[in-house]
Design a protein around this nucleic acid. Structure first.
Lengths: 364, 364
DNA sequence: ATCTGAATTGGTAGCGCTGTCATTGTGATT
DNA sequence: AATCACAATGACAGCGCTACCAATTCAGAT
């Protein structure tokens, strides 16, 4: 080992009195070498502070320890939570993360998948289940485990970790019905439409239909006012509570007897709460408010906001674990992992026994 | 080119009727080859769909296109914004990002820096200016551009992109004084202390001292109630508005005549607003509220919240640009780049001419 | 004693690219 | 015409590692 260089496998081998290739085996597949050799090599590694050169390893083995992770947005805290799980799960493993951001653009997603696959990743983790046909086929032929995350499907490319947005939307809507709300609006921004949002919407609609409460005028889809081609999501804008304030005003104007609003996400719920405060509506008596994701930003609201807890951190963590299990040859036999959701029941929908529904309906 | 393989530089060279090394030059340093050759090689690249193998390139040149980016947290939206800037700036370049999360742990930061430097990155981008001495020296000897971001300092390791937190804290406090507030509290959670938060606090204190308004009892530092060793930040917890509600209660109990609260960040400001609403305090008349960062979550609050806009996206973007300029040998002569801040003046501190300050002081 | 096969170790030959030379050809200089 | 400088291209070797195959050892079977 020259003084100016970091030690190489050859240096380790020399110190351990074996050939470089044997040292390689002792390090990578310790099970197939003798105990004595393994100990000698490990001691040499320790002594020299040897760290394998990952570029050389990747070049020689056409197999890497890189996990490609593709998310549609870095602006939404949703994906921060997922990434936190991913990075925490990766930390104790030899894997490294390559992160890509599609900005909700299918073409960009295809480009990123193609780019990442050139590096022969150990695994690919992508967000959502609605990849384009080209993206699907690229991933199917990737020759590595593929984990789709966030949403569930009966037809995963390989495996999927998430929860059902339809069930989640249904569950929250049932909760609102059980609390005595009868005119339950849904607030939704079209500029940010995606399959997951649509799933929640479907769950809401199904629950209302089952209860005989469905009315199309309860759906408030705010269209982006900007006539440019790109959706707001693609331009990196993020949903803010501000978007919801005009949304609630329009919903109340359109459908005055609305007694609860199920918001497609928490920033909207916060905005609805502020608009209700601004208009002097009592929450939860006059208006029930429910959010989605149970994100940190709504903790501390007054009144406290009901939301639907989604296992975002867990999804990221579990996606890595699943990929790792496949890489190590011990895959979970079940390719579809539903991590479930839960209603975080708080004051903003807590109308039980406090106010007869008929009174509430009569407010306008 | 064998059918089962992606094309290599040799394939390109064969098609362009030149040697592989010449093809390499045509691709990497097009300026030094003849126009004719360059065009032949480019045509071959295009035709074969050739993409260089980055692992091989890294191995051969001991120089990579990887930028190591180290942030203290993925949970805070602050860093999501920075990362968005980083990833957007990197997209059109040949650079790739390696992201590390220190969880606000200096030891983990040292580990990550060491790990990243083994890959001979093209540049390192780290958060903050308060690296440990070991981390500083590792970065100083890295042999690549180093950009510190978020905070400014007179003594950067190499270059720094950010803004002065002291100035920012000062600026907001001046704004509150100019609005007629005289008993301006500062809300701060000790569990999340870091040099940047402390800087803002110093700015606040300096502005009050200059105006003869400083009083130590105006500082509300909430200590984490959890007696475990690790700070809350390190455990991945995030500040929520909920933390601020008890904080405001204690501040008002301790220092009843407080007429404004400058919050160390926006989630706290939101919590203070909710607590004010819960207590029936009028904002901005009885209590002025100012946040920090001007993050999306406060847009739409009622009353709208004043905050201090910080150029988070721009910092990430600019940090990459600076690194790139150094790599390409055209560095900005100025190693310290101050992107500045601005008060986003909104209703929660808009008391000018509306209420004589003496009345507000007398509320309790 | 010979053979067989498993367990263990070593040798060779690259992976795809680029650093460092050496070589060729061209026009300018003396 | 001889010399030089420089631009353009090529040859060689090697970055650090591992796939592949060969060699060795040794226990147990024949």
């Amino acid at each position: 080992m020259r003084a100016d260089r970091r030690p190489t496998l050859t240096d380790v081998a020399r110190l351990a009195h074996c050939s470089p290739i044997t040292a390689s085996r002792a390090i990578n597949t310790p099970g197939i070498v003798s105990v004595d050799l393994r100990e000698r090599v490990m001691a040499a590694v320790e002594h020299l502070g040897y760290r394998p050169n990952l570029n050389a390893r990747a070049l020689a083995s056409t197999r890497t320890h890189v996990v490609g992770v593709i998310v549609p947005s870095l602006a939404q805290h949703i994906f921060s939570d997922v990434l936190r799980g991913v990075y925490d799960a990766v930390q104790p493993t030899p894997l490294r993360v390559h992160l890509g951001n599609t900005h909700y653009d299918p073409a960009e997603e295809e480009r990123l998948i193609g780019e990442f696959l050139r590096h022969k990743p150990a695994a690919m983790i992508v967000s959502g289940i609605d990849q384009s046909p080209l993206a699907r086929s690229m991933l199917a032929d990737a020759g590595c485990p593929v984990v789709q995350m966030m949403d569930l499907t009966g037809d995963p490319i390989d495996r999927v970790v998430g929860f059902s947005h339809v069930d989640a939307g249904y569950k929250m809507t049932r909760h609102l019905i059980d609390q005595g709300y009868r005119r339950i609006g849904y607030l939704f921004l079209v500029g940010w439409m995606n399959t997951r949002s649509v799933g929640r919407l479907q769950g809401w609609q199904r629950a209302l239909e089952e209860a005989g409460l469905y009315d199309p005028s309860l759906l408030m889809t705010r269209t982006s006012k900007d006539p440019e081609g790109q959706s707001r999501q693609q331009r990196g804008e993020v949903i803010t509570p501000l978007h919801a304030r005009a949304g609630l005003r329009e919903l109340l104007a359109m459908t005055p007897r609305v007694d609860a609003v199920f918001c497609n996400n928490d920033p909207l719920a916060l905005g609805v709460l502020f608009e209700a405060i601004a208009q002097g509506l009592r929450v939860p008596e006059d208006l029930g408010i429910a959010g989605f994701n149970d994100s940190d930003m709504i903790l501390g609201a007054h009144p406290s906001l009901t939301s639907l807890r989604t296992p975002r951190y867990e999804i990221g963590f579990r996606a890595v674990e699943e990929a790792l299990a496949v890489i190590q040859g011990q895959p979970n036999p079940e390719p579809i992992i539903d991590l479930g959701t839960e209603v975080s029941f708080r004051k903003s929908t807590d109308r039980c026994g406090r106010l007869p529904m008929d009174e509430a309906v009569g407010r306008t």
